[in-house]
């Protein structure tokens, strides 16, 4: 990996991100949602932690995951990836440059959304550590699927299930009211639930280990996607 090349790709992708309406609005969606939730009922006090975490989930799916996947897919679709790979830039330079843009946009979207819902105690060290692991998980998913999809249109096939499963996981409590239901028991092992526990102050080593396991699983998707892409030519 070469830092000059990473920064060149970062600069290019930053400009592309700002001029791509689809990507640019994805940063605003969580903020709009946060502004809406934050002003729903001023007398009810603080927003329930489930809703705070769902906003976090929306940030990570619509900005981190979707943004990364779309940027990779667009390079594939428009044949610009070929030009980059025929240059001295490696695929790692490319991913690192794009990841920096996505991380920047995720931080902006998340910080603004949390500011708008006026959530106290959100920026604790434990919560930040949990959010970093969640961010790596979604970034890996975006890279892995982005390496495989050939067009921007195909990304929506992946976006909807990923958003539903990993971005809105606590929503299951509204859909399945029975507490001991197997679906709810399974959902409690999903990454966003670990962040919910950590945010509520109930997080311990177990929650971090589960998040790490999800990060490892997402990393294996990236490695598999790399292998598959290599064998595709």
């Amino acid at each position: 990996m070469n830092i000059t090349r990473v920064m060149a790709i970062f600069e290019k992708d930053y400009k592309e991100f700002m001029r791509n309406m689809m990507l640019f609005t994805s940063v605003l969606i969580p903020m709009v949602l946060a502004a809406f939730f934050g002003r729903m009922d001023p007398e009810a006090g603080a927003l329930p932690s489930e809703l705070v975490i769902i906003i976090v989930g929306v940030v990570f799916t619509s900005v981190t995951f979707s943004g990364m996947m779309t940027m990779m897919a667009e390079e594939n679709e428009k044949d610009t990836l070929r030009g980059l790979l025929q240059s001295p830039a490696s695929i790692l330079d490319l991913i690192a440059g794009k990841s920096l843009v996505i991380i920047l946009m995720t931080v902006i979207s998340l910080a603004a959304s949390i500011f708008l819902i006026e959530s106290d105690g959100f920026w604790s060290l434990e919560n930040i550590a949990g959010l970093m692991l969640l961010g790596i998980f979604f970034l890996n998913l975006g890279i892995g699927i982005g390496l495989l999809v050939k067009s921007v249109a195909t990304t929506s096939v992946y976006l909807i299930p990923i958003m539903f499963l990993f971005g809105f996981t606590p929503y299951i409590e509204f859909l399945v009211t029975e507490e001991d239901h197997i679906a709810r028991q399974i959902a409690e092992y999903f990454p966003l639930y670990q962040n919910l526990y950590i945010y509520n102050g109930d997080g311990g080593a177990a929650e971090f280990l589960i998040l790490l396991a999800w990060v490892a699983a997402s990393l294996s998707i990236v490695l598999w996607a790399f292998k598959r892409r290599k064998s595709d030519g």
Binding site: E16, N20, D79, R82
Partner: peptide
């Protein structure tokens, strides 16, 4: 230096 029929540019830039 490579110029192929598939070479492309970033249209928004």
């Amino acid at each position: 230096g490579i110029l192929s029929d598939k070479s492309a540019l970033y249209e928004r830039l």
